[in-house]
Each structure stands twice: as structure tokens, then as C-alpha cells.
Design a protein around this nucleic acid. Structure first.
Lengths: 208, 208
DNA sequence: GTCTATATCGGGATAGAC
DNA sequence: GTCTATCCCGATATAGAC
């Protein structure tokens, strides 16, 4: 840990790492203190309790993730460009932060109320996001489709392979090197898959 | 808890429920004992330790899930029929067991070796599964596509919306009733989405 | 602000009576 | 096989010196 940082930041950096990997109940205050290179009791001096520290980390992480997920879709581009950039960006981002999506999902599974406090003071505007996608589906591709389903499809195609990595890798006995290739391939495959699917609606119109 | 069951089964049923929801570190032996309606020390009498009990539950659950995932794809049907049935079946199954996929993913994230012991003595045959899908893609749709990507796509479109339910529901402020509708819709939307995507490859052939 | 020492408690595990 | 009582450690949290 860098000594130039102040103690509070060192604690937060360490707490992030440990909580992201092990969750609330799996994390140990001692481990966080060791990783931060400080004394255990300082954790309480700065953040009062384990729970308080966890909520701090969760809020931070969720905001970061939510912003990353929306900013691309709110920019000025065609929908297909957005999808291409999002998928690409996301696989890159995730490879350096492989635990954080699952961390957020688990934290919310454990206690859904956590999101309430965060969502309000956030520049996450879900309605605008969906409305933007709906408009682009209509104007650029002539499709009247529920944008939520499309958005969830995109997320599923990107996020699932990342959080299920150990599952996929063990079941199909894929070595690390081939797994890296697999993710690299998905940067092209996923946008193509989505584009094909959406184009399919244009010819065959039997949709919700 | 039903008193007609023997103690071992009562414990296993309770352990399943608690571990599925809270994971290894989040679960309490006392909670399992209470739910089973028996004394805490009996847990150790029957299963020696918390870890041993957890591994037992994990093995059981993983096998069940793996079998459910493969049996449909190894049956005798067209690929598109399989996909339709799989998606339908899966959303139904999951609604009654909403925690188990995430339980498995978390357990493997936490300790990937867990799978080794299980996978061997299993009638899960991943190579055969992929080979079957590859053959059907080729013969029924004329596609030379890596079947792993397609399989992962299917799983992602089905599993992600289920495990990310609290995330999706809170972000987009979706009430429970509308969420039930959302899953109901996906039974049709997902197979259509996949079919469209695959058909897209037939005309535009620029694939890995 | 940072440390050492300690309080306190919860939870996994075991001993032993019945 | 099932229970009560208890051990014992690990982990959160606090007191208090520096």
C-alpha cells in the first residue's frame, strides 16, 4: 500500500478489495487492516463498525458501476455503435475488476434495501436510459420492442460469462489462456449476435 | 418440518435452504438446527462439521442443476425446440428455487476446486453436450459456430435476469407483479431473440 | 491519530448424561 | 440418537496510553 495516501483512503482501498472478493460475512476486519498496513482498531476509529464500512464500499462501488453502465447508452451515437462500445469497454473493465458485479448482486440479494439510499442521490436515470433506447430502436431500426428486455439481454450476454467464469471453466475444462481468448472473441460475437437478433425483428414482426 | 422424515433428511432440507440463501460464511449452524427442529449438536453428530455439511449440500445442488441443464440438450429434438423448452422449463424451475444458481456460482467463486470431485462422478458430459449442439447448428441451420458461445449466450439470457433480479427491480423501480410479467414475457422473447440471431448468420456469414 | 491491551460475544465444536 | 452443558477460538468492538 502506498504510504503517500492518507489512512482513510488506504483503509477504503483495502476494504474495497476484501469486501469485493469475500462479501460482508466472509470478510475479516483483520484482513482489511493487514492489507491497508494499519492497526485493526483504526478501522473503527475511521468508520465506527464493519457494517458502516461495508455500506460505504457498497455505495461507492454501486455508483461507479451504475455510471459506467449508463454513460455509454446516454451518449450521442447509433444504438449499434453504443452496443459495440459497451461490450468492448465492459469486457476490458471487468477483467481488471472481476468481482465487483457479483459483489453488487450479492449485496442486493442479501439486503435489497441497500439500493434505496444510493439510487436517489445518484445521476443514474433509469427512465431516461430506457426511453433513449426505445427511441433509437424505433427510429434507427423501426422496432417497437420493450427496451428493458433488450437492455437486460445485453447485460446478460456480457455479465453472465464473467460472473460464471469458474463454473464455465471447470465444467468445460478450459485453461486460462483459452478463457482469455474466449472473452476476446465475445467482444465481436456479442454485438453481432445482438445485431442479428434485432435485424430479425425487422423482417419477421411478431413481437411484444 | 415434517416429522415423518428421518433426522438426516430434515437436516439436509434445512441446510439446503439456509446455505442456498446465505452461503457458507453467512449461514449459522443454529439457524439450520432451528429450521430442522432439532438440536444443534446433532448437526455435528450427522455431518461432523459445518464445512462437511456445506460440501454435501453443494454436491447435491450442483448435480441437480447440472443435470437439469444438460438433459434437455441431449434429448432428441431440433435445436430450436430444445431452446424453447429449456427457456420455458428454466424460468419455471427457477421461480421456485431462485437462489440456487447464485449459490453455485458463489460457491465456485469462493473455491473453484469444489467442482473437481463432483464433476467426475457425474453423468454431466460437457464435451458431448457441446458436440451435440455443434452438430445441430451445422446440420439444421448450416452454421459453423463455436457451440460454447451459443450455449453461454442462452444461459446468460436466462440466468442473468434471475440472479440480478433485486438489481433490476430496484434500479427500474419494478413492482413484484410487473416483474412476474417480465419473466413470463421472457419465455417467448428469449427463444425468439436467439432464433433471430442464429438466422442472421445464415444470410450474413462473417463468423468465428 | 495510532498503537496495545482487553472486553465481550457469537458460533463451531466436543463431552457426557440419558 | 438426542439432549444439556461447556469449551474455546476468532472476530468485532472499546478503553486507554502514547
Amino acid at each position: 500500500m502506498d504510504n503517500s495516501q492518507n489512512t482513510e483512503d488506504k483503509i477504503l482501498a483495502a476494504a474495497r478489495e476484501v469486501f469485493h472478493k469475500k462479501g460482508l460475512s466472509g470478510a475479516r476486519m483483520q484482513e482489511i487492516a493487514d492489507l491497508a498496513g494499519i492497526n485493526k482498531s483504526l478501522l473503527h476509529y475511521y468508520f465506527r463498525s464493519k457494517d458502516a464500512l461495508f455500506e460505504k464500499v457498497f455505495t461507492e462501488t454501486f455508483s461507479q458501476l451504475a455510471n459506467k453502465m449508463t454513460e455509454i447508452f446516454l451518449s450521442e451515437m447509433t444504438l449499434m455503435s453504443k452496443i459495440g462500445i459497451f461490450v468492448n469497454f465492459y469486457f476490458n473493465f471487468i477483467s481488471g475488476h472481476s468481482y465487483i458485479v457479483q459483489f453488487v448482486i450479492n449485496a442486493l440479494q442479501d439486503k435489497p434495501e441497500r439500493i434505496r439510499e444510493v439510487i436517489l442521490k445518484q445521476n443514474v436515470t433509469p427512465e431516461i436510459l430506457l426511453e433513449t433506447i426505445r427511441k433509437q430502436l424505433k427510429e434507427e431500426m423501426g422496432l417497437d420492442i420493450d427496451p428493458l428486455h433488450i437492455y437486460v439481454n445485453i447485460l446478460g450476454l456480457v455479465i453472465f460469462p464473467v460472473i460464471a467464469r469458474p463454473l464455465i471453466q471447470s465444467i468445460f475444462a478450459i485453461p486460462d489462456e483459452r478463457m482469455a481468448v474466449f472473452y476476446e472473441q465475445r467482444k465481436k460475437i456479442v454485438p453481432t449476435f445482438i445485431e442479428n437478433a434485432l435485424k430479425g425483428y425487422e423482417t419477421d414482426r411478431t413481437m411484444v
